[in-house]
Design a binder for these strands. Structure first.
Lengths: 350, 350
DNA sequence: AATAAAAATGCAAACGTTTTCATTTTGAAA
DNA sequence: TTTCAAAATGAAAACGTTTGCATTTTTATT
């Protein structure tokens, strides 16, 4: 009566059902999926047919229990709901998808405690590797990862002597590039709108790059022009409006494009023409910056390439245990001169 | 000599190691995590201490193999790299995170074949539930899901008599609201910039809503003013520029805010003042639309609420097998009148 | 046709938990 | 103190695969 013992509950067929229907052993069915070349063609066909008849979907969890791979990779970002990382996330995901892997993603909102909790949560799910944004991470999280030999790659930022393998761009250089550009255009009265640099090495590096250049050119910036600003178009707009009502630098360098968008809108709101009354520069160049009016001058960070390279690095790392060369991937940066910055002429400035 | 048999490879401790160190059986350690109230306090403390000493992280895969729950939920969206869904994705993720669950996400780019492949891939990882955007899905995918009794919820769009449980807003109504507004402002010369409606029920519903209202008001729109436009600021801008160079409606209704942004920038590029020369309306109201200059008139879709409600529905469904009431969650829609639309005066229009 | 080597397949023991059932311990009532 | 029910814990059998090893089948060689 109850000969349906091997049938898994819920009517979903298991490898045993497929094996029986194809007239082979479960081991052979397993091999059909994991090393098909090992089977001879007729066997392969019988199994394929049986699996398709039954609507079999293999259970990777059970497999992962035995070998070591779950086929899932983690990606932890500060925020998903923000144009900054969106392009990278999608590229990372697509690349994994192409290799029949899946992505577990979570956001921590620049909270390192939370990041650690997320790392633990992902580890409980047996990820084959993980990508973390930047270099600032809790030691506990890093320990958990290294104890388990889970491949880690730090993305977005790049440093030659980083302790983690990293795939990203030199954010200090990005800051330098944009600052050089602004200075070269003759600006001396410059305001800086940057996000909080706590737990944010990217912002820190960019800021350092900008300040280095300014220092080289003997330009000093009053503290009142170094303004902390969240990653938010609306808030940036508000802050910029407040600033511009009482103070009028000739250029504003923003820590990222989101802030720069806010500044652009602030100018429009105030009736200031960019770049005639004010030059605005960002860092990042994500989709949209190019199409503002005028187009935003910024430094392009190849987000898509970073996402792809991060996925590739993790894949290689998990399969071979070795880093692909080059060990660290330094992504190229390029200054995008667009309409939002202009050479300083006599009629503008403070 | 080889007494370290129970020690799992890679130096990561297992439940057996924790049990030994705490002087209890593995079963008790398991209970510590799954039903702690069952243990008496001293036992609990000993286990907690042992787990912490060893740096134990439990393996949910092994657990999921036995009971039915992996603790991961899937979310499949058309695109991640697009402001449209970003807010919802983050809310969904955060809600799951709060319940100690994780999110597997993937994008299919409006390709239903790919969506089906992704569903299979997620099913191989034993997700406890899945959220799909809209109602247009491959039958194969739906069959796989129902055969395995995996809870599914359709999000973003809402219909009373939908076959799937759904959490979203009535997109037809959204179209009606924005069209009513534009018509009420006296516009008759209207252009429509909408995304492709193939495999996109949201766009279809919105379009139908708009067209219904126009019909009621006996407004006919020339086919040349019904323009297909991708979800892309740059492309929308380009298309809008081409249109406005040769034709000048008094208002443009866009299928979503992304397109509307593009249209706004096109106007700035062409030196047209919004809303004096042209009224622009969107649908969606995602972060950013409010801060454009002028602010974009649009219909607000509560993306965050949708994400939260979708996660909650899935959680309830997977735990109890029952839908939370109300069975279908219809999210409220609201017209946001901002600066980008104005009453038609004599000096504007075609 | 006989034999050896190679290729294909099967058997059964993992993988690290959870859970049922049985057993022991505890606490309360007599 | 006993006695009994309730609470806490332990033993061992799953869960659905993968893989090392053993066995069978095929192919190549003589």
């Amino acid at each position: 009566m109850n000969q349906r013992r091997t049938r898994s509950r819920k009517g979903a067929p298991g490898i045993v059902d497929v094996a029986r229907r194809a007239g082979v052993s479960p081991a052979t069915v397993s091999r059909f999926y994991n090393s098909p070349d090992m089977l001879k063609v007729p066997t392969r066909n019988r199994i394929k047919q049986a699996a398709s008849d039954l609507g079999y979907i293999r259970d990777r969890m059970a497999g992962a229990l035995h070998n070591r791979f779950s086929g899932s990779f983690g990606l932890i970002v500060p925020t998903i709901d923000n144009a900054i990382f969106a392009e990278m996330i999608e590229a990372f995901s697509l690349r994994l998808q192409m290799q029949d892997r899946t992505m577990l993603i979570a956001a921590h909102g620049y909270d390192l405690e939370l990041e650690t909790a997320i790392v633990r949560s992902l580890l409980e799910r047996r990820i084959d590797g993980i990508a973390l944004v930047g270099f600032d991470h809790g030691q506990v999280a890093l320990n958990m990862l290294s104890q388990r030999d889970v491949p880690v790659v730090s993305i977005w930022n790049y440093e030659d002597n980083a302790t983690l393998p990293c795939v990203g761009a030199d954010n200090r250089l990005a800051g330098q590039l944009i600052a050089e550009h602004v200075v070269e255009y003759g600006h001396r009265e410059i305001a800086l709108l940057f996000p909080d640099t706590i737990n944010n090495d990217r912002a820190r590096s960019r800021m350092a790059g900008v300040e280095g250049v300014l220092k080289n050119h003997a330009i000093t910036i009053n503290e009142s022009r170094k303004i902390n600003c969240p990653y938010d178009v609306g808030k940036a707009k508000k802050i910029a409006i407040e600033l511009l009502k009482i103070d009028r630098p000739s250029a504003i360098i923003c820590g990222n494009d989101v802030i720069a968008h806010g500044v652009m809108f602030a100018c429009q709101y105030l009736g200031l023409t960019v770049p005639r009354h004010l030059s605005v520069a960002g860092i990042g160049d994500f989709g949209g910056s190019e199409y503002l009016e005028p187009g935003l001058t910024t430094v392009r960070l190849p987000a898509k390439r970073i996402g792809i390279a991060a996925a590739d690095t993790l894949l290689t790392l998990s399969e071979t245990g070795m880093l692909p060369n080059p060990t660290n991937h330094a992504m190229p940066l390029s200054l995008k001169k667009r309409g939002s910055t202009a050479k300083l002429s006599e009629d503008s400035g403070a």
